[in-house]
Amino acid sequence: MIDTPLVSGIHDKAAKKIGWRRANMVRTLLSEVFRYNIPKGLIEVNYAKDVIPKRRPRDRAYANRPWNIEERDIVLPRAKPHVHVALALMMNTGLDPTDALKLRKDQIDEDTIWGVRGKTGEEVAIPISPTLQAALDLFPDHEAETVLASSRGEAWTYNGFSTVWHRFKIKLEDEGLIAPDLTLKGMRHTVATTLREAGLDERRIADLLGQKTPSMARHYSRSANLAEKNRETMATLEKEKERRAKIVKPSLKSVKPDQSEDQK
């Protein structure tokens, strides 16, 4: 007989065997199955609804932590040009790595990036900061339709860029320059954290990161006001990064990005 105690027991066993996160996924799956079958008369109650989700263990580190200024100043100057511009794009927009790599040239209109966040389908309008513009201006022209490209002038695949990033990161780790938990997605968290600490409310940050409820029927024209508001948000991000940079004593000499070729 299926009942809530049975589902709760399954949930507990799953947590011990496959971890708290996957156990919660099992609970969610069962809940959806029950919910779908109630109107069909196959079951009367959603027995998973009242099962309490497992919490993240307190001693477990959060994935994709924000980068600090020292890490930014270590990584960017040492990155090869095709990696450098990709990191600069993610770091100065809060774009998810997948969205950044897929960003097309025709999605940039003068000083604004227009797009749709892949995960949520939410429209984004991101002003291009002077820092990002400088990085884009230094990037060699290429034939790919995307803004970013490999050293061969071809659009990046996510796996291709991840491989190059991983090799580069491991090298820095081996040299003792960065901690081993630095991730590409962490740069998105960096933008959100920096703006939150600068005093911006969560709604404005969500607007910049494309975290609102999806609405695929919108047109770019309707985002005109959003773009202007995000311009103020981006200005806050720039000012906060400059303020933080001034209070951190430089520990490394500034070097230009490595001009050697990278491998896709």
Rank of each mutant, 00 (worst) to 15 (best):
P77L: 09
G94Y: 01
I69V: 11
A144Q: 02
A23C: 12
R78C: 09
P53H: 05
Y36T: 12
I38Q: 01
Q133R: 15
G41M: 06
D96M: 06
D59C: 05
E143Y: 00
H82L: 02
A134F: 04
D73C: 02
I126L: 08
A79V: 11
W67L: 12
L138N: 13
A144W: 01
Y62V: 13
K119W: 00
Y47R: 01
M91K: 00
D106P: 00
L138K: 14
R60I: 07
T98N: 06
R27G: 13
E71C: 06
T98W: 00
W67D: 10
D99R: 00
I38T: 05
E70S: 14
R78N: 11
P39K: 05
L103S: 02
W114H: 10
T112Q: 01
L132K: 04
A125V: 08
V33F: 00
H84V: 05
V26I: 15
R56C: 12
R60S: 12
Y36R: 11
R22E: 11
R22H: 13
H82T: 14
A100K: 02
D59M: 03
L138Y: 01
R22W: 01
N68A: 09
T120E: 04
K40T: 08
L30M: 15
F34S: 13
R65E: 15
R117L: 06
N64T: 05
A100M: 04
Y36E: 13
N24Q: 07
R58G: 15
I113N: 04
P81W: 03
L87N: 06
L132P: 10
L103R: 00
A86F: 02
T120Y: 02
D73W: 00
T120R: 02
I74T: 15
T131F: 07
R55C: 10
I52Q: 12
T28K: 05
R22K: 11
I108D: 02
D111M: 05
E123V: 03
I128S: 10
E145R: 04
D109G: 02
L76A: 07
Y47A: 13
V26Q: 07
R27V: 12
I74G: 10
K80F: 01
G118Q: 12
E110F: 07
D137F: 01
D109T: 11
I18V: 15
A79Y: 06
L138S: 15
M90E: 13
N92H: 15
E143M: 06
G118A: 14
G19N: 05
I18H: 03
V45N: 04
P97E: 01
E123P: 07
E145C: 01
Y36W: 09
A134K: 15
L87P: 08
K54A: 14
R55T: 14
F139Y: 10
L138G: 09
D59V: 07
L87E: 06
